[in-house]
Design a protein around this nucleic acid. Structure first.
Lengths: 229, 229
DNA sequence: GCAAATTAATGATTTATTCAAG
DNA sequence: CTTGAATAAATCATTAATTTGC
């Protein structure tokens, strides 16, 4: 199955990178602050770092917090952000027809992996038609691209066999709307590109057990960093 | 090559849940707004969506903005964010010894893929020792995990040959600090687990050409991906 | 001893694979 | 079965080590 092993080496060094404007949380404005770190060559950094860097930094709360002291009931942390409510009934994004339409239009227009700014704009626009987040847009493009590709691969393989029910799923006929120069090689996609997408974590995760039978809405909330950038 | 195909099914549904607080950007509180979209079953959504959803939403600016009217010189956009500079000399994160030490400690403690909250905390802590962002922490764990894995795979393959210098690379001896139930199977990792990490895009990218030979700092920030291809 | 050239490590992205919800 | 969501694998790209020539 995996017999491709193609190596793309060209198109090198032409991708620019975005410096990703560093939200204001990192409060080190002085640029040369790494006075520590004696930079010993070929240091194993095992015993040394363990001694130097531990500081005030209890790992217990980080590593698998379930095994540690369970601090669920205690409002010890800063549980003050009341951003409750969130997803009323569903865990995952349920796109509306308008949203899908716009996304497909963008895809057909040639967009493959939008960058952060584009995702932000798209999310803002699609937000008018229903709840959506940036990651939904991102994932949609990822998935759509991958599935279009494997659909085409399957069609190209099965198409030679010409089984009478293979490709009757969609059979879109009115594709040729205007098709200016945009369409180009819908097939034979270029497999590697180098983009930079700067993203930052913001919302905290929501595990929400399978919620098949649980009806209670005890949603506690956590401190996100509300200070934006 | 791809002959593994192992499916791990245990250790399921044991992750505690943080109910997530959805930043307030999505402003549709009324939950049932999809008046449009007649929801025709197995809709192709090609011609229909193109008609319904276009609205006020110029795709031209999204899809490969270079093919459209180039608006470089015009300061029409909000080119007011003088978030220049940021990375003084380097594009990518250059971890200090302390940061690496903490990260390795966390890794050895058992942390594999921290969630958003953990990443946020780690980033805050590591920020004391040098500039760092959340994505750096995330990437570090991804890369470290993957490379430890392939290192072990390589060792397990070569280890059977019993070359006398195979595993003398690190030979950490003082591993057993306290090691309560934490350590468990460092080898034979459980490769699939289901977590939720909600992340959102935040920083907009800004472009900065390679600056290898160009000494000028004319970093234009046009909204682009320079060419689709 | 230093600096350019080369190599090794590793940070950052993209693609492939997989799980699970509806 | 379709598809959103998440992770693992592959790989590009940049920085630090290391080597080499002077």
């Amino acid at each position: 199955m995996g017999s491709g092993m193609k190596v793309h080496q060209f198109s090198r060094g032409l991708w620019e990178h975005e410096p990703s404007l560093t939200l204001g949380c990192c409060k080190n404005t002085s640029l040369l602050l790494r006075p520590l770190a004696p930079k010993l060559p070929t240091a194993d950094s095992v015993s040394t770092t363990a001694a130097t860097a531990t500081a005030a930094f209890d790992l217990k709360s980080f590593i698998r917090p379930e095994s540690g002291p369970r601090k669920l009931g205690s409002s010890d942390h800063k549980t003050e952000a009341t951003q409750v409510e969130t997803h009323p009934g569903g865990t995952r994004w349920n796109p509306t027809q308008e949203q899908i339409g716009i996304l497909e239009m963008l895809y057909r227009g040639g967009m493959r992996t939008p960058n952060a700014q584009q995702i932000e704009q798209i999310t803002t626009q699609l937000g008018k038609y229903g709840k959506i987040e940036g990651k939904n847009v991102f994932y949609w493009f990822q998935n759509h691209k991958a599935r279009e590709r494997q659909k085409q691969k399957r069609n190209s393989i099965l198409g030679l066999n010409n089984s009478p029910r293979a490709s009757t799923a969609s059979t879109i006929t009115t594709i040729s709307l205007d098709t200016r120069g945009q369409m180009e090689k819908e097939v034979e996609e270029s497999p590697y590109k180098r983009k930079c997408r700067t993203w930052t974590f913001e919302g905290l995760e929501e595990e929400k057990r399978h919620c098949k039978e649980g009806g209670d809405k005890t949603l506690e909330l956590f401190p996100l960093h509300p200070e934006g950038k």
